[in-house]
Design a protein around this nucleic acid. Structure first.
Lengths: 104, 104
DNA sequence: CTCGTGCGTTAGTAATCGCTTACATTTGCG
DNA sequence: CGCAAATGTAAGCGATTACTAACGCACGAG
């Protein structure tokens, strides 16, 4: 999950994920969208695959990538929880105030 | 916005932002939560401040930090849009298919 | 079997990151 | 003023990042 968020902190990878969101796209077709080398894209795809954000299917000499909706959904849920889990935050802040009072 | 997402890709900074979510907390109180140096936390706070995710208020020798809800909301909106903006994705995928057909 | 194509992998590089240690700055207090 | 507390800043370090260039490998066509 942490790996997924880190992977999407990179704009290029966000764009790649968009491209393969609901279609399988071959690596070279993905690379055609960018000004960088195929190699760079291949490495980005590795990062996305290791973060489990995309899946790869091989067919002949081609390699098709597609977003993995489960992981995307998990990441989304993780963030939604982050924005809204106020209880944990309040507790931690209260502890800080408490500690400050005690240590003086 | 990009800076904000990048800032939150770091677990420590996510935790810091949580701590100052709805309370002003002094730098040293924030640092007390972690095993790393005050200095490291100070640098994390700089990153968060430059990403406009927190604001700083000085009072005497203290420096109080608090999350900036506007930026958090913007980031959240940006991501919500990312997850759901399907039209752009379809267009891009269609272009890829088109290009592939043309180039053969 | 051999050659071109599609892609990954390796090696190398400049930049950035997260961290520590040491020093600087500001503020309040006696 | 002189010292201590709260905090930032600077310098340096090992790890990682995003990239390029070059090579390697598997597959399909002839």
């Amino acid at each position: 999950m942490d790996a997924a968020l880190k992977a999407l902190a990179e704009p290029r990878r966000r764009e790649i994920l968009r491209i393969v969101w609901d279609h399988e796209v071959a690596a070279s077709d993905i690379a055609a969208h960018f000004d960088v080398t195929r190699s760079a894209i291949s490495q980005h795809l590795s990062v996305l695959r290791e973060a489990d954000l995309v899946v790869e299917r091989r067919e002949g000499t081609h390699r098709y990538y597609r977003a993995k909706p489960e992981t995307v959904a998990e990441l989304r849920a993780f963030l939604d929880d982050y924005w809204t889990s106020g209880l944990g935050r309040l507790r931690v802040a209260a502890e800080a105030a408490e500690r400050r009072r005690r240590d003086r």
